[in-house]
Amino acid sequence: MEFVIISVIGVLFGCGTYLILQRHLLQVVVGLSLYSHAANLALLVSGGLKRGNPPLLTTDAPYVDPLPQALILTAIVISFGMTAFATVLAFRVRQVYGSDAVDELAGGEE
């Protein structure tokens, strides 16, 4: 099972990279979201997949490793905050800068 998910992670990373390299800010934001989904899946894989019940002590052992889940939860919240900020930023760039094309944001090195 791990290898299936690892392949999916690879695909998500590929798609994310492709989107981040696009011209449109919205695509970049979506690309970053794909990145974080993929990273969360990677964390999930690190605890092993389909190797036990949910780590609720009311159910029966064996349980899966609860730590990656806790880490992912933290990561989800953080990336939610980041994505929210990035989205509003992109939208403000569109408003103030008048463009949401990434290559029009070039410059500023001189």
Partner: peptide
């Protein structure tokens, strides 16, 4: 871009694969 995307995706997959 496509090349870099494929490269990055492959790299991450291989990395995780190696770990597993």
């Amino acid at each position: 871009n496509i090349g870099m995307s494929v490269g990055t995706g492959l790299l991450v997959s291989l990395l995780l694969f190696a770990a597993n």
